[in-house]
Design a protein around this nucleic acid. Structure first.
Lengths: 248, 248
DNA sequence: CGAGCACTTGATCGCTTTCAATAGCTGTGG
DNA sequence: CCACAGCTATTGAAAGCGATCAAGTGCTCG
């Protein structure tokens, strides 16, 4: 069975859905042409491993569509998710030979890949790429540090509320945003994945979601479809009063 | 009383102790000259606030000597340290107008500062600076994610062992490294600062340090001077079997 | 000597984990 | 069609770990 397909269809970058957000965002049309020569697409199925920690790192690239998760594992099996990869997010680290994290496709996923060497050479000659990657990396660093506060200092209830708030905000930036405090979205994660992200057990996640539901902070339709009647209320539950400094 | 002094002594960059590790590491002598024109030194006393979250960000720079901490605070006072700044580490974010974290001098400290605007302009024209900053930021991101595993999944005892291991390794890279498993260093942090870093209370920190001492994993001389008779044993206690992927 | 501070230690409380049972859903095969 | 396996999720009861509250030690500095 073919687990991942490699497409050599060179979809035109100018029509790319992540053209203005990905690592190539600052490139001019000439730079884009050169990138286009070395890029290729790969598809992954939901649940499939994209990269395993310790593996030699042969390519880097951008998530075009779908969602992936970045995670670390201890020898005894405890795992901690350290990032969610959404469309336009960058995977892999120039200048590193082996992967530091596990990357797993959460949903079906398409990546725009570059073999690492040619990409690194291109980065040397193309400040626009390094500049954009710096910007994106700084954003990710801020998100990681924001998450350190969640992991280190928040209660289970606040952790769940924080995660829901982040997912709500991210999905809002892509689609239907209700100008009032109301918000609707689907959870892209299982309870177990949420637990791995929040440093909790899946039982605790389930209990706290039930509690938030009982208290009217959220409304569930089925297990995954979430309605937030009042976003401010959710932020309060998250411990981030009003503006709370998240950026992504 | 003068809390921070601004020195306009232009110490020569070529003799700078962090010349080859800081954001200027890749600069050639011509680029260094231009940096030298816009740099200035500032000193801070132990305990002094360097930057407060939300403040307008007027300068960026490198820690030349001393230690500072990066932290976030919730409205109710809970705080989480999100980074330790050692000599050569970079402070501030180009392209950001206000500070996202509190930066506090843990020890007396000297910074090599640049006003933000001129530095940003210089970065535009000087790929060597952006490239080096990208490298440093990627390292910090890895460190932050490593820390997410510590905060989210490790027990109090493992957290303490992890912190001691990281401090040991960092101080080893700067000075006396015993080729055998033995290691000696001073803790640059109070128990409270360690608690803020690890997402624990200072009482738990104190108890776990006592426990590690009782079990012979560490030996204390006074409250701050630590001897690790067997580094492998400490790593085991940290839950990182042998090689565990920390980078800094 | 006494105030202030960093640290240690003890006792108790409570939140999250752990262990366990159950429900709901989907797909498979008799 | 129903039975059953496999999976995700929920809920309950009990245990354990770290937090909280509180007292006390040792050190430095005025």
């Amino acid at each position: 069975m073919l687990l991942s397909e490699t497409h050599h269809d060179h979809m035109d970058c100018s029509g790319c859905p992540i053209r203005h957000r990905a690592v190539c965002a600052r490139c001019d049309s000439e730079e884009l042409e050169r990138l286009e020569e070395i890029k290729y697409y790969r598809s992954f199925q939901a649940g499939q491993n994209i990269i395993w920690s310790g593996d030699p790192l042969e390519f880097v690239g951008s998530v075009v569509s779908g969602i992936a998760s970045l995670s670390q594992t201890m020898e005894d099996g405890r795992t901690q998710m350290v990032g969610l990869l959404l469309p336009s997010d960058f995977v892999g680290r120039p200048g590193r030979d082996s992967a530091a994290y596990n990357v797993v496709a959460t949903t079906d996923l398409v990546m725009c890949c570059f073999r690492k060497k040619p990409f690194e050479q291109m980065m040397e000659r193309t400040p626009h790429i390094a500049q954009r990657l710096l910007q994106m990396t700084l954003d990710e660093l801020d998100a990681a540090r924001e998450w350190m506060l969640v992991l280190g200092r928040k209660t289970a209830r606040e952790k769940i509320a924080s995660l829901l708030a982040i997912i709500a905000r991210r999905s809002a930036s892509l689609s239907k945003s209700h100008a009032d405090g109301r918000m609707v979205f689907d959870l892209p994660l299982t309870r177990e994945a949420m637990a791995d992200y929040l440093g909790l057990t899946l039982e605790t996640v389930s209990r706290q979601i039930s509690a938030l539901k009982k208290d009217g902070v959220i409304v569930l339709e089925g297990k995954r479809h979430v309605i937030v009647p009042d976003m401010d209320r959710l932020m309060e539950e998250a411990g981030d009063d009003s503006d709370g400094g998240v950026l992504n």
